[in-house]
Simulated assay, not measured.
Amino acid sequence: MGKTNPGRFFEDYSIGQVIRHAVPRTVGQGERALYHALYPARHALYSADTFAQACGLPASPIDDLAAFHVVFGKTVPDISLNAVANLGYAEGRWLKPVWPGDTLTASSEVIGLKQNSNGKTGVVWVRSRGENQHGETVIEYVRWVMVRKRDPNTPPPETVVPDLADALAPERLVVPDGLDFTRYDFDLAGDPYRWGDYAVGETIDHVDGVTVEEAEHMLATRLWQNTAKVHFDTSARPDGSRLIYGGHVISMARALSFNGLANAQMIVGLNGGAHANPCLAGDTIRAWSEVLDKAETAAPGVGALRLRLVAMRGTKPFALRGEDGKYLPDVLLDLDYWALIPV
């Protein structure tokens, strides 16, 4: 037993601690094929080299969320193996495209700690980074998780709650080198709508739904090398169910948003996110979006939309919270992100 890893508990973290995560992962066209098999992902920039090249890129990158999942999965054994819940995200930025053939590694810095009043759990904030084989940061984000304590009698650490931005300022968004939407082919992209066709406050029902199956979500979670027990082991949850990986819900909702936001090609910023209620096999995921903000960029023909993406298991869009301010039971995900779109 001494050689196995039970995962970290709350008292194993300290402010400023930097954790290098195993195992490096070289990504290729296989990741793209599996990602598009798992989700109805059809954004043209991630589907065709020729489309990406017409937009100024050397080739089609690996899907932005696929890159996120690879980095996220590496952090799980060290950050959330003993987590009760993944609570939220902030200050996420995609800094460089990930190309087929790139090798990704990940590290996390502990930036916040707060023991809960029950003394049995605590919240850990980390800033995680994914790097390519050149040592360049390709993605970074903050997330916070509720983690079990090994011993409830252990004295609590000094409380440190990081000061995080409610949303990334547009000037902090990084547009990939060379991206140029001035020759954008709307017919091939599958949607005629530009940056100027969207208004702040507008809501979009993405119409379609996908029923989540047990085998598919476990395949996805294994693909990203996510080892969290609650996704695989029915004894890890009191009700004997396997919790659907939150990233699976994110990718499903993002793929569904193609119907109405097909030209929101690249995710470049993650302002915040909450997994509002558990998602289980048999749930049918539907999605709707709200335009929260718009911004110009310095890249030719490229604008940015700040979007709220909501995944739900019900059939009534545009309902988010009850009169008590809490998420409605059918809301699965509330995600706030920036995407690049042709002007």
Rank of each mutant, 00 (worst) to 15 (best):
W94T: 11
V110M: 06
E109W: 07
L95D: 09
V76C: 03
L81D: 11
F68A: 07
V98Q: 03
W99T: 10
D102H: 12
P100W: 01
H69R: 12
Y89E: 10
V71W: 06
D64H: 14
K114M: 14
G101K: 03
V70T: 15
L87T: 09
V98S: 05
K114S: 14
L113Y: 00
V70N: 05
G88T: 05
P77Q: 02
V84C: 11
E109K: 15
N116I: 06
D63E: 15
I111Y: 07
L113I: 05
N82S: 09
A85R: 01
L65F: 14
D63W: 10
T105K: 00
G92D: 01
N116H: 10
T105V: 11
T103L: 09
P100Q: 00
K74Y: 09
G73M: 04
S108T: 08
W99K: 08
S80C: 10
G101W: 03
V98Y: 07
V98F: 06
A90D: 13
G88V: 02
A106V: 01
W99H: 10
V71S: 08
L113R: 06
G92Q: 00
N82A: 08
H69K: 09
A106E: 04
D102Q: 08
P97G: 04
A106S: 15
W99L: 06
V84M: 14
A85V: 07
A106D: 04
S107W: 11
T103N: 11
W99Q: 08
H69L: 13
D63P: 14
S107E: 15
L81S: 13
D64K: 08
L104I: 13
Q115M: 12
Y89P: 08
E109S: 13
D78C: 11
L113K: 00
L65K: 08
T103P: 09
L81W: 12
D102E: 07
L104G: 08
G92C: 02
G101V: 00
T75R: 05
E91G: 07
R93T: 10
Q115S: 14
G112I: 06
E91T: 05
P97N: 06
A90R: 13
